[in-house]
Amino acid sequence: MRRAVEKMKANNKRSTFVLQLTAMVDMFTIIIVFLLKSYSTSAVNITPQKGLSLPESVSIVHPVEGIKMVVSLEGIFVEDKKVVTLIDGKIDFTETEAQDRDFIKKLFKELDSHAQKSMDIQKENKEFQFEGKIVMQADKKLNYKLLKKVMYTSSLAGYADLKMATLSLE
């Protein structure tokens, strides 16, 4: 026993402190592989807003460049700017036109200003073309009544090509 302790002491004296990195490298390799798998190479990425639950779909095409519109239970956002406030997914009737209840005034104003900007760019730059594309992220709990108003107003503002963002099931 005494001899064994002495031998251990002798061995300890000989070796310096070496950090074992193998396990850490293994872990990092796994993390890198996982991240590479979930890394998106698409030019346009859509990150769902916090608290927004998108519907699930089996068939989705690539997201396209367009005006980003979010319709959540709290409000309607255009390019991250809150345009209309909703209360539990319902719109106040004062937000709509008296003669046309499907027309959301503030949303039209905001979208129209974006359309105008795009038209101005188009005048200066011939390569740029205003296509009226809009990518809508809407909460799955919303009803068609509200979405109909949103789609109707968007089409009147010149955004007739509406793309619905959904979660990929595949």
């Binding site: 989705i60 690539h62 997201p63 990929s168 595949e170």
Partner: peptide, 10 residues
Amino acid sequence: TVFVKVSIVE
């Protein structure tokens, strides 16, 4: 990295 995939291959 995008953890919630909103797009897939056409």
